[in-house]
Simulated assay, not measured.
Amino acid sequence: MPRSEAASPPTEARMTEIVFPDHTNHLGTLFGGQALAWMDKAAFVAASRYARSTVVTARSEQIDFHVAVPKGALVELVARVVATGRSSLQVEVDMHREDLMTGDTQLATRGRFTMVALDMHGQPTPVPALAPSGD
């Protein structure tokens, strides 16, 4: 069913990956660079869906690695647009690890990304204001 014009843009994107051996470091855990790449990809998807335009990463900040993610684990990335500027979007990304055999989950990594929406000429373009949450 198509989205209504009055509906607010989606603010969240979810992705799932599995940690294969080529994603790991010498300790058999997820390489930090791979975690950041997946997190940036999730931020890109959330920001692109929200802005309905091309976006680029302008900044990544406050990336906290809480627990290691072993080979064979699933990771679920949840990216949420939490603030907007004129052409920028702040996206928070949580990455949870899941033991495929037991289903146990745990927050592994959390970070914040600033994305900038671009027009067809590669110039910053306005994004919709983020509606206040209805808490």
Rank of each mutant, 00 (worst) to 15 (best):
M1W: 11
M1V: 09
P2A: 10
P2Y: 04
R3T: 13
E5V: 13
E5C: 09
A6N: 15
A6S: 14
A7K: 03
A7Y: 03
P10F: 00
A13G: 08
R14P: 12
M15F: 13
E17H: 14
E17T: 12
E17N: 14
E17Q: 13
I18P: 08
I18Y: 08
V19N: 00
P21L: 01
D22N: 12
D22Y: 09
H23D: 14
H23Q: 11
H23K: 08
H23R: 10
H26N: 15
L27M: 15
L27H: 13
L27Y: 13
L27C: 08
G28F: 00
L30D: 00
G32P: 02
G32L: 05
A37G: 12
A37F: 07
W38S: 02
M39D: 10
M39I: 08
K41W: 13
K41L: 11
K41F: 14
A42W: 04
F44T: 14
F44V: 10
F44Y: 14
V45S: 05
R49T: 04
A51H: 03
A51T: 04
A51G: 06
S53Y: 03
S53I: 07
T54A: 11
T54N: 06
V55N: 01
T57I: 07
A58C: 04
A58P: 05
R59C: 15
R59H: 11
S60N: 11
Q62A: 13
I63S: 07
F65P: 01
H66M: 15
V67S: 06
V67H: 08
V67Q: 08
A68M: 07
A68G: 08
V69T: 07
V69A: 03
P70H: 06
P70M: 04
K71V: 15
K71P: 09
L74V: 15
L74N: 14
L74I: 12
E76A: 10
E76M: 10
L77A: 02
V78E: 06
R80Y: 10
V81A: 03
V81P: 01
T84G: 04
G85Q: 01
G85T: 01
R86I: 09
R86L: 11
R86K: 12
S88I: 02
L89N: 05
L89A: 09
L89V: 01
L89S: 02
Q90A: 14
Q90H: 09
V91H: 03
E92D: 07
V93Q: 02
M95F: 01
H96T: 05
R97W: 02
E98V: 05
E98M: 07
E98H: 07
E98Y: 04
D99S: 05
L100E: 07
T102W: 04
G103Y: 06
D104H: 15
T105H: 14
Q106G: 12
Q106H: 13
T109K: 03
R110N: 14
R110F: 12
R112S: 14
F113E: 00
F113C: 06
F113D: 01
V116H: 02
V116C: 00
V116M: 00
A117R: 00
L118W: 04
H121A: 14
G122S: 01
G122T: 07
Q123K: 13
Q123M: 08
P124T: 11
P124R: 09
P124Q: 03
T125R: 05
T125N: 03
T125I: 07
T125C: 05
P126A: 09
P126F: 09
V127L: 06
P128F: 01
P128K: 05
A129Q: 12
A129V: 10
A131P: 01
A131H: 12
P132C: 12
S133E: 10
S133G: 10
G134F: 12
